[in-house]
Design a protein around this nucleic acid. Structure first.
Length: 203
DNA sequence: CAGTACCT
DNA sequence: ACAT
């Protein structure tokens, strides 16, 4: 279990091809029910380059007026999020070491030119629960720093099936995606990358 | 402060 | 830097 930095664990190719394909099929059905939306920055309303949706009791959303938050319904359809699939609960149980189940699975779609700036995941009330991140599709350059934005960072390439766990000391580490490497995976017919992020919100 | 533009 |  390689440790990128304190509390940040990387499990290369944790999911085999068959499991990855199963997840992609599962994601397609979730997206059919809960359409992708474009998140925007609070205040400015500037769009992010990823598209997202969620499954589970809670979903992470953001808009110009109310900013980052978790809510139980889709921001466009107003419908509850699709249920958390068993397979994600299983993965959480296998890698998180955390007793309570995840309440939110944020599904981020990265086109080949999408990025995610350095940030902390700190919208959850339970900051003792780890964050579990699953990579599918094209490779990406993932960057992890420390608790301060200006701390030194390390970059690693993530490939399809990789899992990263930010827990303990690493739970609030700044992290982001600097770039997607086009055509590095055959998992997604339309290219790009999907990232699933499992989180516990309530203590 | 989960982005981008525009510097050197 | 600008703006959050």
């Amino acid at each position: 279990m390689p440790q990128l930095s304190n509390g940040v664990r990387h499990f290369p190719e944790y999911l085999d091809r068959a499991r990855q394909e199963g997840l992609v099929e599962m994601i397609r059905s979730i997206v059919a029910e809960a359409p992708l939306f474009v998140p925007v920055m609070p205040g400015t309303g500037r769009p992010m380059s990823v598209r997202m949706t969620n499954c589970g009791p809670l979903g992470w959303v953001t808009d110009k007026e109310r900013g980052y938050r978790y809510q139980s319904t889709h921001p466009v359809t107003g419908m509850p999020w699709p249920a958390m699939p068993e397979v994600l609960l299983d993965i959480w149980n296998d890698v998180s070491g955390y007793g309570k189940p995840p309440q939110a699975c944020l599904i981020n779609f990265y086109s080949d030119d999408a990025k995610m700036g350095l940030h902390q995941d700190r919208d959850e009330r339970d900051l003792t629960a780890p964050v579990v991140s699953i990579s599918l599709g094209n490779n990406c350059l993932f960057r992890v720093g420390g608790l301060s934005r200006t701390d030194r960072t390390k970059s690693i390439k993530l490939t399809s099936g990789d899992i990263v766990v930010l827990g303990g000391e690493g739970r609030l580490c700044f992290h982001g995606v600097d770039r997607i490497y086009p055509a590095t995976s055959t998992l997604l017919k339309n290219g790009g990358r999907i990232n699933l992020t499992l989180r516990r919100v309530d203590p």
